Amino acid sequence: MTIVRQNTLNQTVSPPENLSEKYMEAERMHDVLLLLQNLINSEEATVKLILDCLYDVGSVNLINQKLRLKPLNRVMKLIARMSKPVFKVIAFNWFKKNCPQLITNWLQTQVAFEKPQNTPEQVAIEVVQLEPYAIPQTENLSQEIQNLRFQIRWLAGISITAIAILVVTAIRLN
Results as ranks from 00 to 15, higher is better:
Met76Ile: 01
Leu54Thr: 04
Phe87Ile: 03
Pro120Trp: 05
Arg74Gly: 07
Asn93Arg: 14
Gln110Pro: 04
Gln122His: 13
Gln110Met: 14
Val89Cys: 02
Ile103Gln: 00
Trp94Pro: 00
Lys70Pro: 02
Leu51Trp: 03
Phe92Asn: 03
Ala80Ser: 15
Ala80Leu: 08
Pro100His: 09
Leu78Trp: 01
Ile79Met: 12
Val47Lys: 01
Lys66Glu: 09
Glu114Leu: 11
Leu62Arg: 09
Gln101Val: 02
Leu69Arg: 04
Ile90Arg: 14
Gln122Met: 14
Ile79Arg: 04
Leu78Cys: 05
Pro71Gly: 10
Ile103Asp: 03
Val86Asp: 12
Val75Tyr: 09
Asn105Arg: 13
Cys99Glu: 05
Thr46Leu: 08
Lys96Glu: 10
Leu54Glu: 05
Pro100Trp: 03
Pro85His: 01
Phe92Asp: 05
Gly58Asn: 11
Ile90His: 08
Tyr55Glu: 06
Arg81Pro: 00
Arg74Lys: 13
Lys48Asn: 02
Phe95Ala: 12
Val75His: 13
Ile90Asp: 11
Ile103Thr: 11
Thr119Leu: 15
Pro120Cys: 04
Lys66His: 07
Leu72Gly: 09
Asn61Tyr: 06
Leu72Cys: 02
Tyr55Val: 02
Val89Arg: 14
Cys53Ser: 12
Trp106Gly: 07
Val60Ser: 09
Lys96Pro: 02
Ala91Gln: 06
Val75Gln: 14
Ile90Met: 12
Asn93Leu: 13
Ala45Pro: 00
Gly58Asp: 01
Gln101Ser: 09
Asp52Trp: 06
Thr104Gln: 15
Ile125Val: 15
Gln101Ala: 13
Phe95Thr: 11
Val60Cys: 03
Ser83Trp: 01
Leu62Glu: 04
Asp56Cys: 09
Pro120Gly: 01
Lys48Trp: 02
Val89Pro: 01
Cys53Phe: 06
Asn98Tyr: 02
Gly58Lys: 07
Arg81Ile: 04
Phe113Arg: 13
Gln117Thr: 07
Ile103Met: 09
Thr119Arg: 08
Glu44Trp: 01
Asn61Lys: 12
Ala80Gly: 14
Ala45Asn: 08
Ile90Phe: 12
Thr119Trp: 05
Met82Trp: 12
Asp56Asn: 12
Val123Asp: 06
Val47Ala: 11
Phe113Met: 10
Ile63Gln: 06
Pro120Phe: 04
Gln108Thr: 10
Asn64Ser: 13
Cys99Gln: 03
Lys97Leu: 12
Thr119Ser: 08
Lys115Gly: 00
Lys84Glu: 10
Arg81Thr: 07
Lys77Ile: 12
Ile103Gly: 05
Ile79Asp: 02
Asp52Ile: 02
Val86Ser: 12
Ala45His: 04
Glu121Trp: 13
Leu49Tyr: 03
Met82Phe: 15
Phe87Pro: 01
Ile63Val: 15
Asn118Lys: 10
Asp56Tyr: 01
Leu78Glu: 15
Val89Leu: 11
Leu69Glu: 13
Thr104Leu: 01
Asn98Ile: 00
Met76Cys: 07
Ile63Leu: 04
Glu114Met: 05
Tyr55Phe: 15
Ser59Met: 15
Val60Tyr: 00
Glu114Val: 08
Ser59Glu: 09
Lys96Ala: 09
Ile90Gly: 06
Thr109Pro: 00
Lys77Cys: 08
